[in-house]
């Protein structure tokens, strides 16, 4: 009897570990959304003058709805602008004149990329670059501008 009871409890223990890992993977990390799976996503690029503190894996939102993630951030050696690689869900398409802004959640929150669709008929294809971009708000620059405005008055 004793051995069977031990086997039973150890089985429960292992199952518990599995259930917890699945919970963490699905409910907490949301592994189902935009995984490494290439089939459901396509890639877009955007160059920014300043990305502020944008991180890899930051969300890409349209009207606040998450449609993709930042997969890589590099520097364009010709223009010396930051080159951001974005992975977008295949279900959503954007016109060639769509714009990308780096926005902030709350005053000091995480930064994300907000996409705004344009009016063009053609859609951006896999590997295209978004040209209309606006950089991150940098607090020091804002304060600097504010100060110069104040002093010039």
């Amino acid at each position: 009897m004793k051995r069977l009871a031990i086997d039973f409890w150890v089985g429960i223990f292992i199952l518990l570990g599995l259930v917890c890992t699945i919970f963490l993977s699905l409910k907490v990390a949301n592994i189902t959304n935009f995984g490494a799976d290439d089939k459901n996503t396509y890639t877009l690029y955007a160059d920014f003058g300043n990305i502020g503190s944008l991180k890899v894996n930051a969300p890409i939102k349209v009207s606040g709805f998450v449609v993709g993630r930042v997969s890589d951030i590099g520097l364009n050696p010709k223009t010396y602008q930051a080159k951001v690689t974005m992975i977008i869900n295949k279900n959503y398409h954007f016109s060639t004149d769509a714009s990308a802004d780096i926005l902030t959640t709350g005053l000091l929150g995480e930064q994300y990329i907000g996409l705004q669709n344009g009016g063009d008929i053609d859609d951006l294809a896999n590997g295209d670059t978004i040209t209309l971009t606006s950089s991150a708000m940098v607090l020091e620059q804002l304060i600097g501008k504010f100060m110069t405005n104040m002093s010039s008055k």
């Binding site: 409910k27 907490v28 894996n57 995480e110």
Partner: peptide, 12 residues
């Protein structure tokens, strides 16, 4: 919010 910031590979 949790799902946005927790990454399967990097965190779990």
């Amino acid at each position: 919010q949790m799902q946005d910031s927790v990454n399967f590979h990097a965190d779990i």
